[in-house]
Simulated scan of single mutants.
Amino acid sequence: MTASPADLQADPQTELQIDRPSVTDGAALWRIARDSKALDLNSSYSYLLWCRDFAATSAVARDGRGEPVGFVTGYVRPDRPHTLLVWQVAVDASHRGRGLAGTLLDGLVARTAAEHRITSVETTITPGNTASERLFAAFAERHGATVEREVLFDTRLFPDGPHDPEVLYRIGPLTP
């Protein structure tokens, strides 16, 4: 899939391009997630499917060579069609510390708000993931939104060994 000019967004701070992911980006997104050492790593197959089936509600940042250096994956909740659930946010180590995650998140939410009338964002964060906590708190502040938190999935629900609880962050209503 080739992104249309309307999908491309230049980030003047970093001179990166932000657009929708394509299936050919799946392997790079998997590597960025793996190398983050902070995310639950899904199968490489799931990243390929994500780039195919949820490209409209996801974003990828590309360097000057067109290589992915960061991403945000998300989807519109079927039972809450004005809510974007952000699944994962990751930035390659060589591009961290420049505000790229926030730029990706803002761009994705702006695009999905225009296309799907999104008024709120949800995500889950494990306790102690201060980078994600800061990212989403700053996002809420930039958008004049409140943040509500509650445990969505308790530790005992995870069948594959010890896992921290996943705390649901509800952010909204969003203002432009």
Results as ranks from 00 to 15, higher is better:
M1N: 11
L8N: 04
A10N: 10
P12I: 00
Q13N: 12
L16R: 03
I18Y: 06
I18S: 01
R20C: 12
D25C: 03
G26W: 00
A27E: 15
L29C: 05
W30Q: 11
W30S: 03
R31A: 10
I32H: 08
I32R: 00
S36Q: 10
L39A: 08
D40P: 01
L41S: 10
S43K: 00
Y45Q: 13
Y45L: 13
S46D: 11
S46E: 07
Y47A: 05
L48I: 04
C51T: 05
F54P: 00
A56H: 10
S58L: 06
A59N: 03
A61Q: 08
D63Q: 12
G64S: 12
R65N: 14
R65T: 13
G66N: 10
E67D: 12
E67P: 01
V69I: 13
F71G: 00
F71Y: 15
F71L: 14
V76C: 13
P78G: 06
D79G: 03
P81S: 09
T83H: 04
T83E: 11
L84N: 11
L85M: 14
W87D: 14
V89N: 04
V89W: 00
V91I: 13
V91A: 11
D92S: 15
S94E: 13
S94K: 11
S94N: 09
G97D: 08
G97Y: 04
L100G: 06
A101K: 00
G102E: 12
T103R: 02
G107S: 13
A110K: 11
A110C: 04
A113V: 02
E115C: 01
H116F: 15
H116E: 06
I118R: 01
T119H: 09
S120A: 15
V121A: 05
E122R: 02
T123I: 10
T123Y: 01
T126K: 08
T126Y: 02
P127N: 07
N129C: 09
A131F: 02
S132Q: 07
E133M: 13
L135V: 10
F136L: 08
F136T: 12
A138F: 04
F139H: 03
A140V: 05
A140K: 00
E141R: 15
A145I: 05
V147G: 06
V147A: 04
R149G: 04
R149N: 04
V151K: 03
L152M: 14
L152P: 02
D154C: 03
D154R: 12
T155I: 03
T155A: 14
F158V: 09
P159H: 08
P162A: 11
H163Q: 14
P165K: 01
P165E: 15
E166C: 06
L168H: 05
L174N: 12
L174C: 13
L174I: 12
P176R: 02
